[in-house]
Design a protein around this nucleic acid. Structure first.
Lengths: 261, 261
DNA sequence: CGTGCAATTGAGAAGTTTCAAAAAGCGTGG
DNA sequence: CCACGCTTTTTGAAACTTCTCAATTGCACG
């Protein structure tokens, strides 16, 4: 995870990204062998796609989400241009999504924690628009999208959940654009720390003490500033007693003051 | 529209945003009175939600999209906080979406031309996240979202189209974030002009001569700069012979050079 | 216990914003 | 139809934030 290093919960590094795309969507497929009933017993169930589903629907979802995959730190879950077949729910660990510009520049467009969903960008063109890189050794649930779509045609609550997830991603990005265009470097870094803090808290981690898994360069890119400015801003916050910084280890000392920025 | 003023195609300023939310979704509703078969004869059909649908599916969609609404210049199609019921396809005219920050600052998060869809931000929280303001006298098709969802459960191609639209909005915003965080003011303005140009061309308007319906302040906000910087940049482009500016009237003289920025 | 990547820090340069003033455009009402 | 008032746009100059380049330090991994 992000804050605390958790013991590896799984093995089976099966790569099942290559979904049976040509195979027609039969719902007999739902009844296929299911190694372990993940969703129903998953700790992330309430913050994942399965939230707001009743037990029987979770069981059906579970038949769509049959496989998961491990991704080692620094490795790509997918790359820009890869044909789109599945979306992914982060089981453990964390990811960044990276968009490359023609100029060779790279832009970190998002960070994703456990329970969050990656890959929605690929739906529109049927090819992924960015790279998804693991920030630490991570695992994802593989959700073949055509199966999910098929199930959404049958399960209304799931359909609504998927629509809400996509909409939430749109809203998140709108907020990020506002941040990039309106806030100072200080305000952006403060907002970033508070955002991470809130998301970790939601997952049961300390909201005030955590390890950033990404580099200063990643943070800077995500926040629209250079790595030096990101570093300097963190240092300044430390000098002012708002936070404590020790490399990637961060302690938030004054949440109120951070929010004031 | 954006470039050319088109004659008002319609009357009937019926406001039907208040959809029959409590009424159970019966598809008999699809057969209800349909004043005019809009979608099937709509010039925007191929760039709208109806693209990639066959005739019979367009007819069914048409029963969901039964009403449209006029919005006068400067008026709001919806406001942040309004309960979410419908999404809207721009029939004629154009809109901006505006996000307000706690600090009182406003941020223009997007511009929308005919055939484009507004309101997807409201799905996640069931309340709109921003204001949608008409940049000129405009008209929109009202698409009650619960009806659209119901139809998507029956018509696979429509379901896919809706998912692609949402994903495209995610990708668009990702690109905008990259623009905001990586490009100089000059590059942003150039990218903006080329983007508008391409979208107008797609709609059959001149890609090199058009009227911007938004103010310099809107442009600046959208591009993460002050209105003065936006204005100055346009002036500089004119001095360099890349464009011709006369207030809101823009002529692109050297598309290649603009693209080089 | 090096070696190399990541992070910090400094100082000057550059781009953008801010404040200010004037010009231009637009709609309204006489 | 023109005059008036208001908004929008343009342009200038100084101030400020952020970037760039550069050097140093710290940390992790082999």
């Amino acid at each position: 995870m992000f804050g605390t290093t958790d013991s590896p919960l799984m093995d089976l590094p099966q790569d099942d990204t290559r979904a049976p795309a040509s195979r027609p969507v039969r719902f007999s497929a739902e009844k296929a062998a299911t190694p372990s009933a993940q969703c129903s017993s998953c700790m992330l169930r309430h913050i994942c796609m399965a939230s707001n589903l009743d037990d029987s629907d979770v069981a059906r979802l579970n038949n769509v989400v049959r496989n998961w995959r491990m991704v080692k730190q620094g490795q790509a879950l997918y790359r820009a241009g890869d044909p789109f077949q599945s979306i992914y729910a982060v089981r453990s660990g964390s990811f960044k999504t990276v968009l490359s510009h023609q100029s060779g520049r790279e832009y970190v467009s998002g960070f994703f924690l456990s329970g969050e969903t990656i890959g929605l960008d690929g739906i529109s063109t049927e090819a992924h628009a960015c790279d998804a890189i693991a920030l630490e050794d991570s695992a994802v649930c593989v959700i073949p999208f055509h199966l999910l779509e098929a199930l959404c045609r049958e399960v209304r609550s799931l359909q609504q959940q998927v629509h809400k997830m996509m909409s939430a991603e749109i809203v998140r990005e709108t907020g990020q654009m506002m941040l990039l265009s309106n806030l100072t470097a200080e305000q952006r870094v403060a907002a970033f720390l508070l955002n991470i803090s809130a998301r970790l808290q939601r997952r049961g981690f300390s909201p005030t003490s955590f390890t950033l898994r990404m580099t200063r360069e990643d943070i800077g890119s995500y926040l629209g500033m250079t790595l030096e400015t990101a570093s300097r801003t963190l240092s300044r916050f430390q000098q002012e007693g708002l936070i404590r910084v020790q490399g990637k280890q961060i302690d938030l000392l004054d949440l109120e003051a951070l929010d004031m920025r």
